[in-house]
Amino acid sequence: MPTAGTLLPSRHLLAIEDLSPVEITALLDLGEQYVALNREVSKKRDTLRGRTLINLFFESSTRTQSSFELAGKRLGADVMNMSVGTSSVKKGETLIDTAMTLNAMHPDLLVVRHQDSGAVSLLARKVDCSVINAGDGSHEHPTQGLLDALTIRRRLGRIQGLTVAICGDILHSRVARSNINLLQKMGARVRLVAPKTLLPNSIARLGPDIFHRMEEGLDGADVVMMLRLQQERMDGSFLPSTREFYRFYGLDADRLALAKPGAFVMHPGPMNRGVEIDSAVADDVQRSLIQEQVEMGVAIRMAVLDALSRNIKNVSKGLMV
């Protein structure tokens, strides 16, 4: 099914910032094909047959890691999961040591999540294989941005001209940065809604409109994207309490009614029910795209793996016999 020819200029996918609208559209189009494939009975392809994919997660994750694992397996790759608890990182090995060690095992694709911004690009400079950023610190999470875009495009038919409100902990969120980048590149209007303690300095310079009240930020929005609030931010350092946050920034049916009629709700997961989002909204099949985001996640990751694997030289490094 996938057509031949390269889609991306680089062998890595590190940030939405590096992608052009044309490349984003190509990835979404390819993702669309994999959505269809994933709904068939026989899902297996051999696009990545013989390739090795390593999931290297320095920060624990359930959905992103399993999504990449499934994507790799459906494309026929050999998939190995490495998490920090089972690696030598805990024995004092540095990130670069780990990278060099893995590199010596000749993987073709390395999917990396790390708690520090820039760590994945540092690692990418030290290895020969393709590296996919599965989230680095508060920097970027490009496949989340792409899967959100695919979800929106499938439901609303376009991204251009839409108004998307991103609400909650913008400060610590890599999802927010990837989405701000991607949605603006594709012609959407982005609004950020958060208390000042959860907004990074100079964020308005990146282009979005800033709101501090949900009532104003949601007014007329096509999509409301909620972000996960980490428990450790709610102990008085960034916010006074969970209940105060929910009172002013939680999404419930009343607040959602302020958005455009029929506006959709998104959340990258995992959700804190009753903190940033009310269960009634999260589970409303008419409005919530949260389950669909998970489905799009597998499809878009298959598209990314496929696109990047086309940039891997298909030449044997040659055992001389």
Partner: peptide, 11 residues
Amino acid sequence: EGETATRLGIP
């Protein structure tokens, strides 16, 4: 602190 740090996701 500023636009560059925000873009890079660095405190």
